[in-house]
Design a protein around this nucleic acid. Structure first.
Length: 308
DNA sequence: GCCCAGGATATCG
DNA sequence: CGATATCATGGG
């Protein structure tokens, strides 16, 4: 066993993260609201390890207590800690973003209501891309259930000491070995099955090198990855936002974002993509967190949190 | 039955 | 070039 404490930049609202997870289910996460704990499997190197992350401290002094159910080498400890810090946007400074948002009337209430909410990122780019492709055009609940079925089909299974079952996200190789006919019974569309498998094969055979994108500008990444069939601009924007934690993305084609801006800005009609990009210009260079908060306004309504 | 969900593509005119 | 049909499924 290995434990450590990870300090995050304040403010961090664990409560807001938990609320968000209600409407954005992640089949890899076992959430225990009572304990304030998230449990899931991480691949450290290639080894799947069960980890529990417990929220401690407070909004202004946030700490996560990490507990791995295996002994870890020093390298593995550092790798795991780095991944967790990445997932929780541990080093993101929200203060200048809130200052910027407070300059725009419709966003003020969001900074108050969702104070301390940070991007909750995927642990790696491969699974972020697969989950984003799965999420194209369908609702979040259906997307989560497709992802869960993919985990059951091709992921590795672990059990904790209480006998609870955890599934690790399938490796690139495991997805690359699938055929569309394996995914069709899981209710993937034929095309979506092809997109995901083709993508995994491109990673495995080296046609695409995800490690390279960290050195690229946003627009470079978009042109690099949209060359793959089934991966459009929206998908890469989501990858940069939820996989890489890039600060200035606006997935303007997103239906949820359109609905959210419609609501938050009190517009007469639903804005189109061009209108979204126009409104979003005022959010630069922090369009990612602004988008997240707009989405969260939609989530709050869906969860029947008070809204006016 | 119809429309919408955190889209992308093929195929029109 | 822009507009349109197609894809799968579940919920309202």
């Amino acid at each position: 066993m290995y434990t450590s404490e990870i300090s995050l930049a304040p403010p961090y609202s664990f409560e807001r993260l938990l609320r968000r997870l209600e409407t954005h289910p992640d089949p890899q996460l076992l959430v225990d609201v009572q304990e304030g704990t998230l449990r899931r499997v991480f691949r450290v190197g290639s080894r799947p390890i069960l980890v529990s992350l417990q929220f401690q401290g407070s909004m202004e002094e946030p700490v996560i207590r990490l507990r791995a159910e295996s002994t870890l080498s020093e390298t593995e400890q550092q790798l795991l800690e780095k991944t967790v810090r990445h997932m929780f946007s541990a080093d993101l400074d929200l203060a200048p973003i809130y200052d910027h948002m407070r300059g725009q009337q419709p966003l003020v209430i969001l900074t108050e209501r969702f104070r301390g909410l940070r991007p909750f990122l995927d642990s790696d780019l491969f699974q972020c891309m697969v989950k984003t492709i799965i999420g194209q055009q369908i609702n979040l609940v259906f997307a989560a259930s497709l992802t869960e079925r993919l985990l059951e089909l091709a992921g590795d299974t672990l059990q904790d000491e209480e006998g609870r079952v955890f599934m690790a996200f399938p490796t690139e190789e495991a997805v690359a070995r699938l055929e569309p006919d394996d995914l069709r019974p899981l209710q993937f569309s034929q095309r979506k099955a092809e997109y995901i498998i083709d993508y995994a094969r491109a990673i495995v055979n080296g046609t695409v090198d995800l490690d390279r994108v960290w050195q690229m500008e946003d627009e470079e990444i978009i042109s690099y990855l949209t060359s793959l069939r089934g991966i459009g601009r929206w998908t890469v924007e989501c990858l940069m936002m939820f996989g890489m934690g890039r600060p200035d993305l606006l997935p303007a084609a997103d239906i949820g974002l359109r609905n959210g801006i419609h609501m938050v800005y009190g517009l007469a009609e639903k804005p189109d993509e061009k209108e979204i990009r126009r409104i979003g210009e005022d959010w630069a260079p922090w369009r990612s967190v602004c988008s997240l908060y707009i989405w969260e306004a939609v989530g709050a309504v869906r969860r029947k949190e008070v809204w006016e």
